[in-house]
Write a protein that binds this DNA or RNA. Sequence first.
DNA 1: TTTTTTTCTGCAACCGATTGCAAATTTAAA
DNA 2: TTTAAATTTGCAATCGGTTGCAGAAAAAAA
Lengths: 341, 341
Amino acid sequence: MEKEVTIYDIAKRLNYSPATVSRALNDHPAIRSDTKDVITSMARQMGYRSNTFASNLRRQRTNTIGVIVPRLNSNFMSCALAGMEKVANEAGYNLIISQSLESARKEKANAKTMFDSRVDGLLVSVSYDTEDIEHFDDFINKGVPLLFFDRVIEHNQCPSIVIDNVKAGYEATTHLLEQGCTRLMHVTGNLKRNVYADRLKGYRMALQDRDIHYEKQLVLETDLSQEAGVEAARQLMAFPHRPDGLFVTNDLCAVTCMGQLKKAGLSIPADVAVVGFNNDPVSQVVEPNLTTIHYPGREMGEIAVKSLINHLNGLMDMQTTNTIILRSELIIRASSLKKAH
Amino acid sequence: MEKEVTIYDIAKRLNYSPATVSRALNDHPAIRSDTKDVITSMARQMGYRSNTFASNLRRQRTNTIGVIVPRLNSNFMSCALAGMEKVANEAGYNLIISQSLESARKEKANAKTMFDSRVDGLLVSVSYDTEDIEHFDDFINKGVPLLFFDRVIEHNQCPSIVIDNVKAGYEATTHLLEQGCTRLMHVTGNLKRNVYADRLKGYRMALQDRDIHYEKQLVLETDLSQEAGVEAARQLMAFPHRPDGLFVTNDLCAVTCMGQLKKAGLSIPADVAVVGFNNDPVSQVVEPNLTTIHYPGREMGEIAVKSLINHLNGLMDMQTTNTIILRSELIIRASSLKKAH
DNA sequence: TTTTTTTCTGCAACCGATTGCAAATTTAAA
DNA sequence: TTTAAATTTGCAATCGGTTGCAGAAAAAAA
């Protein structure tokens, strides 16, 4: 285990002061360029590596971005994280990722850890049962940029990155209606969360635009798990006047539900047309293939990190940008096609 | 933006030395317990938070674990990461995650970053085209514990966490043979990687045990993408003597392949019985449901981090443990059931 | 050649916690 | 009461870069 090389070692070896070495390695303009060359090449030769802690300690900066998500093992989230990691990595930032597991309590604990780790910025998609965001006040007070994505919470200091969930919900619903559905069931998540509330709003608007009466009983608020899909199928079939269309805001839940319906002898889309959400790989595997909304996870992750880093570098002020809306898209597949095209 | 409280502030306020405060906050035995009480409560009252960098700088430790994976958006990997994050978080460690995107070059760059970030330990699942592991020598030389999981590389200094891939391959193959298949195609990944090589070994052993001649042409080495699934189906159908069994070492690839076969009019499992690998959610969605190997991603992640932390705390020596093998399991579903049970 | 301006470089303090060693205090033993 | 032992606490150096400020050196202008 050899000793670590420091700028002092380099300085002594070349007869410069540590200050000069430091500046040379950081490409400071006050250092002549041939001096820089000598120093950097000697640094390489001696196997020098910068000590991040000393640097962080002094500069009060960590080059680290914190990410708090509900859970990281969903297709959408892992794509978003993949995008984040890529951009962060290229910009020389590290990512510290933690999951709240849908619990506000754990989210709070994670926020504290992130704060203590002194992340330069924080990206958050809030948990199911997060009510307030006091636990992020520390960041706001300290001027640490905070950015919400996907599941966001309105806050005038923090920008959000989302898709237009109202529009997506509207399109999904409209599509089902255009296919001739007359009675649409809607299975969604916790309506405290913008993503689900907005999609519901879109659903209602679409109904309204066609003068279809909104029935509260047709909206099922669930945890969108696979079990919820089973339960949704049960409820759907229990209706005296059975719905002929189904809009589920999660693909995995939707396909599980579809499976149950098929098992019960219903035909998709003839008896029940189905639309999911997220464009998860399962949507192209299930039979019939699932119509769904393409949710740009990777892009969302990339843009979130890009915005944060631009802000940190003073290239952009996040306070002025309030919301970034990404394009989503209805992908029509067999599960909803009652009419031939 | 208030000023940060340091142990000096606490010391001054209580008329102790910073040293005493430091020790008190770290529960050092040399501090009387009522002194500790006074100090900790004052720390809380003043809103003190420890400065990790100063501490890291001094202690030459970071409480951070690095993770390098091929990509983080697969079901298996995101489950493994979820497990890692959970355990690490509970033990007060942070995770820095980066992905090699299956490129040895990027893996090297990531390793360097991790090394410079001075992670306390490193968990690695190697990329497709990693040939050597010289880029991890720095860690080994410096005594930073390095642990491989899933896609591992033999190294007498580094333990591995895996499942028994040979056995899994053997069981999958045997199961197909028991169902009456006589000619088995095997679609797998880069055979440089232990996971695929071992599964192939299991496949061959199973054939041998039943005196079935091994045909090289029946083994397809691919990147296991969905496109590879399409291509596999094409090749399967092109055989004059068409295989009646198919063992694909990845569920997503398997289901895509199945889709193609069905589209071509073949019936599953009657014409071709199929077994996948990983127990991805899609396996329970596709029709017929896919027989597969359950791969304990979450457990693998948890155990990986647990082992690393135990080693770091001196509770366990990783040098002596060479390999940890987790239990995997064949899950039999309809896609391979030719015989009724 | 002298003066002014510009470009480089170094000094030294600082970031905040940790820890070996010694001194001070308390407690126990003589 | 004195001495020895055990328990607490503090001093000061240390970890390794960073940066304001001042001074030296070099270049440009007078």
